[in-house]
Computed example of a mutant assay.
Amino acid sequence: MREIKAEGGDRAQRFAMWQTILNAPFFHSLELAVLDDDGMHALVFPCRRAVDGWKDATTGYLVDVEPTHWRLWGEQDEDA
Rank of each mutant, 00 (worst) to 15 (best):
M1I: 14
R2S: 13
R2W: 07
E3Y: 03
E3G: 10
E3P: 02
I4V: 15
I4P: 01
I4L: 13
I4K: 03
K5C: 07
K5F: 01
A6L: 05
A6W: 01
A6V: 07
A6N: 10
G8P: 00
G8H: 05
G9F: 05
G9A: 14
D10L: 08
D10P: 03
R11E: 14
R11K: 14
Q13D: 12
Q13V: 12
R14C: 04
F15T: 14
F15E: 15
A16W: 12
M17I: 10
M17Q: 07
W18A: 13
W18C: 11
T20S: 15
T20R: 14
I21M: 13
I21Q: 08
I21G: 08
L22G: 12
L22F: 09
L22S: 11
N23Y: 05
N23M: 07
A24I: 11
A24N: 10
P25E: 15
F26L: 13
F26H: 11
F26D: 09
F27C: 12
F27E: 15
S29D: 14
S29Y: 06
S29L: 06
S29M: 08
S29V: 04
S29H: 11
L30G: 01
L30T: 06
L30I: 04
L30A: 04
E31Q: 11
E31C: 05
E31V: 00
E31N: 03
L32C: 08
L32K: 03
L32M: 10
L32R: 02
A33E: 05
L35I: 06
D36E: 15
D38Y: 03
G39T: 04
G39E: 01
G39W: 00
M40E: 12
H41T: 12
A42G: 11
L43Q: 04
V44P: 01
V44R: 07
V44E: 07
F45M: 13
F45Q: 08
F45R: 11
P46I: 04
C47F: 01
C47E: 03
R48A: 10
R48D: 02
R48E: 13
R49H: 10
A50E: 15
A50V: 02
V51F: 03
D52F: 00
D52P: 00
G53F: 02
G53E: 04
W54C: 01
W54H: 00
K55M: 00
K55Q: 10
D56Q: 03
A57H: 07
A57G: 12
A57Q: 07
T58D: 12
T58V: 15
T58Q: 09
T59K: 05
G60Q: 09
G60A: 11
Y61I: 08
L62M: 02
L62I: 04
V65W: 06
V65R: 08
E66L: 06
P67N: 06
P67Y: 05
P67V: 03
T68G: 10
H69T: 11
H69K: 08
H69I: 10
W70L: 09
R71N: 07
R71E: 07
L72I: 09
L72Y: 06
W73Q: 09
W73D: 08
G74T: 10
G74H: 07
G74P: 08
E75Q: 12
D77Q: 11
D77W: 11
D77Y: 09
E78K: 06
A80W: 02
